[in-house]
Amino acid sequence: MKKKKVPSVIKDQRLIEYRRNQIIKAAVSLFKQKGFHRTTTREISRLSGFSIGALYEYVGSKEDILFLVCDSIFDEVIERLQPHLRTDVVGIERLKLVIRSYYKVIDHLQDELLVMYQEAKSLDSEALPYVLHKNDLMTNNIELVIRHCVENGLLQLNENQIKLASHNIIVSGHMWAFRRWALQKLYTIDEYIDLQTSFLLKGVGAPGSAQEEIAATLPATEK
C-alpha cells in the first residue's frame, strides 16, 4: 500500500528525520495531555524547540503530525521484532521470544500507543488505510511464527485459530498499556510477560504444563 506523502520544503533527509522525531515526541506528550483536537501546532512547535514557521518546513498540517506519530510506532515495533523473526531459535521457544520482544516494545511505547488508538480516528482518508495496513503487517509477523509451529507439528491449530491466536497476542500486549493503571500495580513487565505467555501457550495447546509455569511465577503465599 502506498504511504501517505508528508510534504517538506527541506531536502536533507537526515535533517527531516531528526526534526520530525522531535515533532513526534512533542506531539505525543501534548496529545496525551490535551488530545489531538485541543492541541495546536504552535504548542507542538514550542515544545519541539523551534518556531511555528520552522515546523511547517517539515510538515503540512497537524494531521500530518498525527500520521507521523502512528507510522513511527508501527515502524519501531516491526523493526524490533524483525531480528527475532530470523533468529536461530526455533519452535515454541521462538514464539516465546517473539512474544517477549513484542511486549517489551509495547512497554517502551506505552504513551505513543495510547495516543495512536485514541486519536487514529482523526486521520484523513489517505492516512488511515495505510496505518491500518501497518497494523496488519505487525499481526502478520506474529502469525508467521505461529504458523511455523503448526507446520512443524508443535501446535494443532486450523487457519481460523492461527489468525485468532496472533490477534490475541497483539491485544494482550496492548492491554499492558491500556490498563496500566491497574496492571502495573500488580506486576512488573517481566511478570506480566511470563503470565500472559503461559496463558497464551495453554490456549493454543502448546506442549508442557502451562499450569506449572503459571504457578512458578506466583508469590509463595498464592501457590
Results as ranks from 00 to 15, higher is better:
Lys2Trp: 09
Lys4Met: 12
Lys5Ile: 15
Ser8Thr: 07
Ser8Gln: 00
Ile10Pro: 00
Leu15Ala: 12
Arg19Asn: 11
Asn21Ala: 10
Gln22Ala: 10
Ile24Lys: 09
Lys25Trp: 03
Ala26Lys: 04
Ser29Gly: 11
Gln33Phe: 11
Phe36Cys: 07
Ile44Pro: 05
Leu47Tyr: 08
Ser48Gln: 00
Ser51Ala: 09
Ile52Pro: 03
Gly53Phe: 12
Tyr56Cys: 01
Tyr56Gly: 03
Glu57Phe: 10
Tyr58Lys: 01
Val59Glu: 02
Gly60Asn: 08
Ile65Phe: 03
Leu66Asp: 01
Leu66Asn: 02
Leu66Lys: 05
Ile73Ala: 00
Ile73Val: 12
Phe74Trp: 12
Val77Gly: 00
Gln82Phe: 13
His84Val: 12
Val89Thr: 15
Gly91Asp: 07
Gly91Asn: 08
Glu93Tyr: 07
Glu93Gly: 14
Leu95Glu: 01
Ile99Gly: 05
Ile99His: 01
Arg100Gln: 10
Ser101Ile: 01
Val105Gln: 06
Ile106Val: 15
Ile106His: 05
Asp107Tyr: 09
Leu109Ile: 05
Leu114Gln: 13
Met116Val: 11
Gln118Arg: 15
Glu119Asn: 09
Glu119Cys: 04
Glu119Lys: 06
Ala120Phe: 14
Ala120Ser: 14
Ser125Phe: 07
Ser125Thr: 14
Ser125Gly: 11
Leu128Val: 12
Pro129Glu: 11
Pro129Asp: 04
Val131Gly: 02
Val131Leu: 06
His133Asp: 15
His133Gly: 13
Lys134Cys: 13
Asn135Thr: 15
Asn135Tyr: 12
Asp136Ser: 10
Leu137Cys: 13
Leu137Ile: 11
Thr139Lys: 09
Ile142Ser: 02
Ile142Asp: 00
Ile146Pro: 02
Ile146Gly: 00
His148Val: 10
His148Trp: 10
His148Arg: 14
Cys149Thr: 08
Gly153Thr: 11
Leu154Thr: 09
Leu155Gln: 04
Leu155His: 06
Leu157His: 03
Asn158Gln: 10
Asn158Gly: 06
Glu159Gly: 05
Ile162Asn: 06
Lys163Thr: 14
Ser166Lys: 08
Asn168Glu: 13
Ser172Phe: 09
Ala177Gly: 11
Arg179Cys: 12
Arg180Gln: 14
Gln184Ile: 06
Leu186Asn: 11
Tyr187Cys: 08
Ile189His: 02
Ile189Lys: 04
Glu191Trp: 04
Glu191Pro: 05
Ile193Val: 02
Thr197Leu: 01
Leu200Ala: 01
Lys202Asp: 11
Gly203Thr: 07
Gly203Lys: 10
Gly208Glu: 12
Ala210Asn: 04
Gln211Trp: 09
Glu213Trp: 04
Ile214His: 01
Ala216Thr: 05
Thr217His: 06
Leu218Met: 14
Leu218Thr: 05
Pro219Gln: 04
